[in-house]
């Protein structure tokens, strides 16, 4: 499957108004997901990014399309995990902290994007 196909899949999957790749805009949640998250979590959010499938990770990344697992986390958990890394959630330290790379607005949008990927709501 080529990159253009991945974008179509992702768009169909989440029914989101943002398409990847976007026309020259940096920082949409879909772009950010592909740029920062997909290397480990996969371009389709399955947890099967290239670093995982190449055998580079000692702990498998979370599947963001697994509604059962994702619904165990609150939106605040997701925010914390993205901003401060896996350690902040007592999960794998292979998940980096992105809080010095992405703005809090970027992270909020990524949380919304993750909820669209899993088609689930977070633990209240």
């Amino acid at each position: 499957m080529k990159r253009s196909d991945i974008a179509l899949w992702a768009a169909a999957l989440i029914l989101a108004p943002t398409l990847w790749p976007s026309a020259g805009r940096a920082g949409t949640a879909a772009d950010d997901y592909q740029n920062y998250c997909a290397q480990c979590h996969g371009t389709m959010g399955t947890g099967q990014g290239i670093n995982e499938t190449a055998g580079g990770l000692s702990v498998s990344p979370r599947s963001h399309i697994n509604a059962e697992e994702m619904s165990k986390l609150s939106d605040e958990d997701l925010r914390l995990g993205i901003a401060e890394g896996g350690d902040a959630l007592q999960k794998s330290g292979l998940m980096p902290p992105w809080g010095k790379t992405l703005s809090s607005e970027n992270i909020d949008e990524l949380v919304i994007y993750l909820r669209k990927l899993c088609k689930c709501v977070g633990k209240q």
């Binding site: 499957m1 899949w9 996969g42």
Partner: peptide, 10 residues
């Protein structure tokens, strides 16, 4: 990247 069965590879 190509995707096969939900798995990315180069």
């Amino acid at each position: 990247i190509v995707v096969e069965g939900g798995k990315d590879r180069i």
